[in-house]
Design a protein around this nucleic acid. Structure first.
Lengths: 212, 212
DNA sequence: ACCTGAACACCGTTCAAGT
DNA sequence: ACCTGAACACCGTTCAAGT
């Protein structure tokens, strides 16, 4: 789809093309062959830029985190807790957007420059709250875990649209209020959208309480 | 590999075979064709038992949660917080065991009987701490998110064993302490194994504080 | 250095046909 | 109802060869 008589292509171009496919056709369509075709390349030419499909996925993670990094983490005009919320909400939105996009985050350690930059911001924030150094690092890990897990749950719920349960023989009665009364009584609350922000606030409460 | 002149096969047999493949050859080897071959079946015969590969994955999730459900959630002899820790540790261990096993949890909503049973136990625990009904449901969601996210991070770190980073052009200097001093100074702490339990305790602190 | 064409060893899924 | 065999439309990756 690129205009003109393109001569050469960058890694960033490939990552962009991959995201465009992800957005329009889902994660299952993000294949080496598919991305190559979108760029007018042969599948084998892709291996000039990335040694494997997994390397492409990891580059996608970095690009994703870079957009979040710039927008949310570095604005000193707002309070620290609000910046954490902004970062978390953006990451959740981008990851849960398409079910299956979570394989990006399991494609390898989050050790790219933008991933580390975000972690750095998180740790700095906790240090600013008066936390000891070791606790701040673990607190940053906890926040990352919560956000990623929330994205996983969100994506999973989105994935079960037109799926008929075929797991166990007799489980069609799962909506039965007598079997799981507490879950049934709070089904509307659990699907509440700002339950995510509420839980994040509780986690931050528990983390910074140690400092006070 | 099943002995004797097997005549018929159950859904549970298929799920068991799938887990055996997962344990020995990883998630990538869990294919419709591979599971069928392990059972001496033709790939097409699998569609007699499950309408799709995704349905098989969802059945695997239920089987996985059932083992955890029985062992951790229902023992009233130990304190509630300890039971949450036991449940969380078991789920983390099983999910992070093999990188890529997290696609199980994104294969669809966690609406099977054992998934709902675990959620029921969590909500009941929070109610026992004096939480309002709506908050207890959201608290259970937060705990699930934290555990799942920790599993994702764990699996991702395990996945990057013999991977050489090919994401961005110039990122080989990521260990440079000057670029990310806080992350570098706490690298040993972040990979600490009981950072998971610590973070879970902080989350529970923040959640139950509302009740007190 | 960058790219092509052919090939290898796989996928999930469908369909007609057998018993 | 359960299973087979053949087929369709795909995968990731490697290798020899071109420029």
């Amino acid at each position: 789809m690129r205009p003109g008589p393109r001569r050469s292509i960058s890694q960033a171009d490939i990552v962009d093309a991959a995201f465009e496919i992800l957005e329009h056709k889902g994660m299952a369509a993000v294949s080496v062959r598919g991305v190559a075709a979108a760029l007018g390349l042969t599948p084998t030419a892709m291996y000039t830029y990335f040694p494997s499909k997994n390397a492409l996925l990891r580059a996608m993670v970095e690009q994703l985190l870079s957009t979040i990094d710039l927008a949310a983490a570095s604005d000193p005009g707002v309070a620290w807790r609000d910046r954490v919320h902004a970062f978390a909400a953006m990451l959740l939105e981008r990851l849960a957007e398409h079910a299956g996009a979570l394989v990006l985050v399991t494609s390898g350690p989050l050790d790219g420059p933008h991933a580390l930059g975000l972690n750095e911001s998180l740790i700095a924030g906790f240090l600013g709250e008066g936390m000891p150094h070791a606790d701040a690092a673990r607190a940053a890990l906890a926040v990352r875990a919560y956000v990623l897990g929330a994205a996983a749950i969100d994506a999973a719920e989105r994935a079960g649209d037109a799926e008929v349960g075929a797991g166990a023989p007799s489980q069609a009665l799962w909506t039965d209020a007598t079997a799981f009364p507490l879950t049934a009584a709070t089904a509307d609350v659990a699907s509440d959208d700002d339950g995510f922000a509420w839980g994040l606030d509780r986690l931050l409460d528990g983390l910074v309480r140690r400092a006070a």
